[in-house]
Amino acid sequence: MNSTVNVTFTPEQALSKVPALTLGFWIIKIAATTLGETGGDWVTMSLNLGYLVGTLIFLMAFIALVFAQVRAERFNAWLYWATIIATTTLGTTLADFFDRSLGIGYPGGVTVIVVLLAASLAIWYRTEGTVAVESVATPRVEWFYWITILFSQTLGTALGDWVAGDDRGGLGLGFEMGAAIFGLGIVVVGLLWLGTRVSRTFLFWAAFVLTRPLGATLGDLLDKPLAQGGLEVSRLYASGILLVFIVACIALIPQRAARRVS
């Protein structure tokens, strides 16, 4: 199939390059965020490559996949979710690099990443006049989208570690309580989506951020040692199971491109 970045779209006919927001979307998203935690930790901790090297490895994968996503002529579920997984693994190592390697702790890491996410959204909105995901149909908007996705994934990781961790300024609530808190937050966002007229764009980004710490705490619950409140499942084994689950979901759950907003 011929692919090019010089694709011409009309506002009425063009489809977004991202999937429609369905229950299946959120199921795969949570699984992908959990995989990002276990996979990122496997590379940086189990393989002893460190946070900086791990970040560089996943950064190269992220850039390559975003270029492929931008060049694609239309929505491709396999490519889209591969890019999402790249953002979750990179977000894990990047958040750990801020929190631990730079020595600014969880509160400091959260603060830095909040600023980066806010700046990304502000520049995107100032340039395009919207940050709605349904507008993702041109190369420039796609780059805004994926950079914002990356920062939202990184923030979610930092939030999950801050709430669950008992070191580096963490709140020490544990993985189970952290998962419960962020799960409740997602339920609240879902109720607002169904029962109010709150901006759908705002609620999407809120849910997208909240699913990341939920996945992070679930991932930590799986692979952390028993002494730290985890189940001590091998990071590689847990990552393999999650990857098989995601592949099955992509193959079996129907997905369609979101209709582009005009």
Score class of each variant (00 low, 15 high):
residue 1 M to T: 12
residue 1 M to R: 14
residue 3 S to L: 14
residue 7 V to S: 13
residue 12 E to A: 15
residue 13 Q to P: 07
residue 13 Q to L: 14
residue 13 Q to F: 13
residue 19 P to W: 00
residue 19 P to N: 01
residue 19 P to I: 00
residue 22 T to Y: 06
residue 22 T to I: 02
residue 24 G to L: 00
residue 24 G to F: 00
residue 24 G to V: 01
residue 25 F to V: 05
residue 28 I to F: 01
residue 29 K to W: 03
residue 30 I to L: 11
residue 35 L to R: 06
residue 39 G to R: 02
residue 42 W to K: 10
residue 50 G to R: 01
residue 51 Y to D: 13
residue 54 G to N: 07
residue 54 G to A: 07
residue 55 T to N: 11
residue 55 T to V: 06
residue 59 L to A: 13
residue 61 A to E: 06
residue 63 I to V: 13
residue 63 I to Y: 04
residue 64 A to H: 13
residue 66 V to W: 02
residue 70 V to Q: 11
residue 70 V to D: 14
residue 73 E to V: 10
residue 78 W to K: 08
residue 79 L to K: 11
residue 79 L to C: 07
residue 79 L to A: 10
residue 84 I to D: 04
residue 85 I to G: 03
residue 87 T to K: 04
residue 89 T to M: 15
residue 90 L to K: 04
residue 91 G to R: 02
residue 91 G to F: 03
residue 92 T to K: 04
residue 92 T to V: 07
residue 93 T to E: 10
residue 94 L to C: 04
residue 94 L to D: 04
residue 97 F to I: 08
residue 99 D to H: 06
residue 104 I to F: 06
residue 108 G to R: 05
residue 109 G to I: 09
residue 111 T to C: 12
residue 112 V to T: 12
residue 113 I to H: 06
residue 118 A to S: 11
residue 124 W to M: 03
residue 129 G to K: 01
residue 129 G to W: 00
residue 131 V to T: 15
residue 132 A to D: 15
residue 134 E to D: 13
residue 137 A to T: 15
residue 138 T to D: 09
residue 139 P to Y: 09
residue 141 V to H: 11
residue 144 F to W: 08
residue 145 Y to S: 02
residue 148 T to H: 09
residue 148 T to F: 00
residue 148 T to E: 02
residue 150 L to A: 03
residue 151 F to P: 07
residue 156 G to Y: 05
residue 159 L to W: 02
residue 159 L to R: 08
residue 160 G to P: 10
residue 161 D to S: 14
residue 161 D to I: 00
residue 164 A to M: 05
residue 166 D to N: 14
residue 169 G to C: 07
residue 172 G to S: 02
residue 172 G to P: 03
residue 172 G to R: 00
residue 173 L to Q: 06
residue 173 L to D: 03
residue 176 E to M: 15
residue 178 G to I: 01
residue 179 A to H: 03
residue 179 A to Q: 00
residue 179 A to N: 05
residue 181 I to Y: 00
residue 182 F to D: 02
residue 183 G to T: 00
residue 187 V to G: 04
residue 187 V to I: 12
residue 188 V to Q: 02
residue 190 G to S: 08
residue 192 L to S: 11
residue 193 W to F: 14
residue 193 W to D: 13
residue 194 L to C: 09
residue 194 L to E: 13
residue 197 R to D: 14
residue 198 V to I: 14
residue 198 V to E: 11
residue 198 V to T: 12
residue 199 S to A: 03
residue 200 R to D: 03
residue 201 T to N: 03
residue 202 F to P: 04
residue 204 F to Q: 00
residue 209 V to I: 12
residue 211 T to A: 06
residue 214 L to I: 05
residue 216 A to K: 12
residue 217 T to W: 07
residue 219 G to W: 04
residue 222 L to Y: 06
residue 222 L to Q: 01
residue 222 L to F: 09
residue 226 L to W: 15
residue 230 G to C: 08
residue 232 E to Q: 12
residue 234 S to Q: 08
residue 236 L to M: 11
residue 237 Y to R: 10
residue 237 Y to H: 13
residue 237 Y to F: 13
residue 241 I to G: 14
residue 242 L to K: 09
residue 247 V to K: 01
residue 248 A to H: 05
residue 248 A to L: 15
residue 248 A to K: 08
residue 250 I to D: 01
residue 250 I to P: 03
residue 252 L to H: 09
